[in-house]
Simulated scan of single mutants.
Amino acid sequence: MADDHTHVQEFFTARAMDWDARFADDGPAFDEAVRSLGLRPGDAGCGTGRALPALRAAVGPHGTVVGVDLTAAMLGAAVRAGRDREGALVLADVARPPFGSQVFDAVLAAGLVSHLSHPGPDLAELARVVRPGGRLALFHPVGRAALAARHGRRLTDGDLRAEHNLRPLLARSGWRLDVYADEDERFLALAVRLP
């Protein structure tokens, strides 16, 4: 399984130092994604931790915020930015989260889906750690077409984040897709954990 992650770790390790500077204008999009979760003071469930301040604000000083990333360099960038004060940072694979079942009210997964080795089982593991009725926000600060253009690729029907692919994938993984927005300025798929 380590080989599945080597490419992802190499990709993000090489970019961790300047990740925030490259995408400095994404802050409002992260804030909006956090608001879409409808969190209340209590518990919430990273990359460089850009969403952690908004998550902390949403759950209040007594809520729990955890940022998980597979790449130590990305977590190091979060620490250098002072975001470790907003929540716990955990070096782990989100496909095998080191948490008990049904411990989080929500998961914000920014830019995650395209990096999952086994999307169905990996999304099912996220469902395992979220209580029934909890929420999952699959988010990216730009939409699918804008992201494909940024990387010099064409958008295809096989894109995992296309609604016709994502909806059944989420359903098989324990989620119900409630909101789907794929716009130039953001991608947001908001799902609810099924009982």
Rank of each mutant, 00 (worst) to 15 (best):
A2C: 04
D4P: 04
T6H: 09
T6Q: 14
Q9S: 10
E10I: 11
D20G: 04
A21M: 07
A21W: 03
F23H: 12
G27M: 00
E32R: 10
E32M: 06
A33L: 05
V34E: 04
L37C: 06
G38A: 03
P41I: 00
C46H: 15
T48H: 08
G49Y: 12
G49C: 07
A51T: 01
L55I: 01
A58I: 05
P61D: 09
P61C: 15
T64M: 15
T64E: 13
T64Y: 11
G67C: 07
T71V: 15
M74P: 10
M74Q: 07
L75T: 03
G76A: 09
A78D: 05
R80V: 08
R80D: 10
R80F: 07
A81V: 03
A81L: 06
G82W: 01
D84A: 07
D84M: 03
D84G: 09
D84Y: 01
A88M: 01
L89Q: 01
V90M: 00
D93H: 04
D93W: 01
F104V: 15
F104W: 11
D105R: 15
D105Y: 06
D105E: 14
V107W: 07
A110H: 11
V113W: 04
L116C: 05
G120Q: 14
D122W: 14
A124R: 11
E125F: 10
A127P: 08
V130K: 08
V130G: 07
R135Y: 01
L138E: 03
L138S: 02
V142R: 13
G143Q: 02
L147P: 08
A148L: 10
A149S: 14
A149T: 15
R153M: 08
L155Q: 06
L155F: 01
L160P: 05
R167V: 13
R167P: 14
L169G: 04
S173H: 03
W175C: 01
R176I: 00
R176K: 09
L177H: 06
A181C: 13
D184G: 07
E185T: 12
F187R: 07
F187W: 06
A189C: 07
A189T: 05
V192P: 00
